[in-house]
Amino acid sequence: VTVHVNRYTYHFDNPEEAEKFAREMAKRLNMTVEIHGNTLKVE
């Protein structure tokens, strides 16, 4: 599972951890999480 935050890319083996990380980053940056299959984008 890949998480994109701005120009950074993070890889996770565990989808739940990836989503938790993405949501935490989105909250911190006041952004939203978009899910595209195995890719989560924080925008």
Results as ranks from 00 to 15, higher is better:
V1W: 15
V1C: 08
V1A: 09
V1P: 04
V1T: 09
V1L: 08
V1M: 11
T2E: 08
T2A: 07
T2G: 02
T2I: 12
T2R: 05
T2N: 06
T2V: 12
V3M: 02
V3Y: 00
V3N: 02
V3A: 01
V3D: 01
V3H: 01
V3T: 01
V3W: 00
V3G: 01
H4N: 06
H4G: 02
H4K: 12
H4R: 10
H4P: 01
H4E: 11
H4L: 13
H4W: 08
H4V: 15
H4D: 04
V5E: 02
V5D: 02
V5M: 06
V5H: 04
V5Q: 03
V5A: 04
V5L: 08
V5K: 02
V5T: 04
N6S: 10
N6L: 14
N6W: 12
N6R: 05
N6Y: 13
N6T: 07
N6Q: 11
N6C: 06
R7K: 14
R7W: 10
R7T: 13
R7I: 09
R7H: 14
R7N: 14
Y8R: 11
Y8C: 14
Y8Q: 13
Y8N: 11
T9R: 07
T9G: 03
T9E: 10
T9D: 05
T9W: 08
T9H: 08
Y10I: 05
Y10P: 00
H11D: 04
H11K: 07
H11V: 10
H11R: 06
H11S: 06
F12G: 00
F12Y: 03
F12V: 00
F12H: 00
F12R: 00
F12L: 01
F12M: 01
F12E: 00
D13S: 10
D13Y: 07
D13P: 07
D13K: 09
D13H: 08
D13F: 08
D13L: 10
D13E: 12
N14L: 08
N14H: 08
N14M: 06
P15C: 11
P15A: 13
P15D: 05
P15N: 09
P15F: 15
E16H: 10
E16R: 10
E16V: 13
E16A: 12
E16F: 11
E16K: 11
E16M: 12
E17P: 02
E17S: 08
E17W: 05
A18G: 11
A18M: 02
A18D: 00
A18W: 01
A18F: 01
A18N: 00
A18H: 00
E19I: 14
E19D: 07
E19G: 05
E19Y: 15
E19W: 15
E19T: 09
E19K: 08
E19F: 15
K20Y: 09
K20V: 12
K20C: 08
K20T: 10
K20N: 11
F21I: 01
F21D: 00
F21C: 05
F21A: 02
F21L: 01
F21P: 00
F21E: 00
A22G: 02
A22P: 00
A22F: 03
A22I: 04
A22T: 02
A22S: 02
R23K: 10
R23Y: 14
R23A: 09
R23S: 09
R23F: 12
R23D: 08
R23N: 11
R23V: 09
E24S: 06
E24H: 07
E24T: 06
E24M: 11
E24N: 06
E24R: 08
E24Y: 12
E24A: 10
M25G: 00
M25Y: 05
M25D: 01
A26Y: 02
A26S: 04
A26W: 02
A26H: 02
A26P: 01
A26Q: 03
K27I: 13
K27C: 08
K27Y: 11
K27R: 11
K27F: 13
K27T: 12
K27N: 13
R28G: 05
R28D: 08
R28Y: 09
R28W: 10
R28S: 07
L29D: 04
L29C: 12
L29G: 05
L29E: 06
L29R: 01
N30G: 14
N30R: 02
N30T: 03
N30W: 04
M31W: 05
M31R: 04
M31T: 14
M31I: 05
T32Q: 10
T32C: 06
T32R: 13
T32V: 14
V33K: 00
V33C: 04
V33Y: 06
V33R: 00
V33W: 06
V33E: 01
V33F: 05
E34M: 14
E34V: 15
E34S: 15
E34F: 15
E34N: 15
E34K: 15
I35P: 03
I35C: 07
I35F: 12
I35H: 10
I35K: 13
I35Y: 14
I35D: 04
H36C: 07
H36S: 11
H36Q: 11
H36D: 12
H36M: 12
H36N: 13
H36V: 13
H36I: 13
H36W: 10
G37P: 05
G37A: 05
G37M: 05
G37F: 06
G37N: 06
G37E: 06
G37K: 06
N38F: 04
N38W: 03
N38E: 06
N38L: 07
N38K: 05
N38S: 10
N38D: 09
N38M: 07
N38Y: 04
T39C: 11
T39Q: 10
T39M: 13
T39N: 09
T39A: 09
L40E: 03
L40N: 03
L40T: 03
L40Q: 03
L40H: 04
L40V: 13
L40A: 03
L40P: 03
K41A: 06
K41D: 04
K41T: 14
K41Y: 15
V42L: 15
V42T: 04
V42K: 02
V42I: 11
V42P: 04
V42S: 04
V42W: 03
V42R: 01
E43R: 13
E43Q: 15
E43A: 14
E43H: 14
E43T: 15
E43K: 14
E43P: 04
